[in-house]
Design a protein around this nucleic acid. Structure first.
Length: 205
DNA sequence: TCGACGATCATCT
DNA sequence: GATGATCGTCGAG
């Protein structure tokens, strides 16, 4: 099935804003214990590296953000609030720390296993499986072990999926980056308008 | 349905 | 020593 063919390296070697838009509808695929878990990406955010006060790379390289400086096509996985993991797709050329935060996805394969991994202790509502960056990471059992991993091959991959038309895409300000001043309002959050599984509502405009 | 709040710790200053 | 690219719960409406 061509939907599960990995995206080519050239896909990632562009500025984060372009990659973010094109990631909508693609599949994030995780091989776990011989089972395929797949999410259709419906919400992402672009972070523009050294030019972006909201980016973890704004102040240059540190131990935490080192993988952002790898060539596009790697993962940047970080730990926040003492308990959550979040997954980014590194973009651009090596040394250009652009990245796209994966904020929400709809289960395509392995929804039951994802629900277990979320450990909610009750049947999850749809958006509770992967409707949020930390939920998405937990649903696919992604943690520090995937930081700096390759996304074009290996147990965590990005594949062609079902690309979405411009008419289905909405954009708006990024979530949770008020500390970044004016940059918090840059419209770098992209979502599939029709999806019921966004981390937060995002209206057209 | 919504807003407030606490949990919890690696990383950076 | 301060702080987060968050989430789940709780109480009010």
């Amino acid at each position: 099935m061509s939907r599960f063919r990995p995206l080519p390296l050239a896909f990632y070697r562009r500025p984060a804003e372009a990659v973010a838009r094109d990631l909508l509808g693609r599949y994030l695929v995780r091989e776990l214990d011989g089972e395929r878990l797949a999410l259709r990406l419906v919400e992402v955010e672009a972070y523009l590296g050294r030019d972006d006060p909201a980016s973890h790379a704004f102040r240059g390289p540190t131990r935490r953000n080192a993988s952002m400086f790898l060539a596009g096509g790697h993962a940047y996985v970080y730990f926040v609030y003492g308990m959550h993991w979040c997954v980014n797709v590194v973009c651009g050329a090596e040394g250009q720390p652009h990245a796209v935060l994966l904020r929400a996805g709809e289960p395509v394969d392995g929804a039951a296993r994802m629900a277990e991994l979320r450990e909610l202790g009750r049947p999850p509502r749809r958006r509770e499986i992967a409707g949020g960056p930390a939920r998405l990471a937990e649903a696919l059992a992604i943690d520090r072990a995937f930081d700096a991993s390759t996304l074009w091959r290996g147990p965590l991959r990005l594949t062609h999926g079902d690309p979405v038309a411009d008419t289905e895409v909405v954009r708006g300000p990024r979530i949770g980056v008020d500390y970044a001043g004016e940059a918090a309002r840059w419209p770098l959050r992209f979502a599939v308008a029709a999806s019921p599984e966004l981390s937060k509502p995002l209206r057209r405009g």
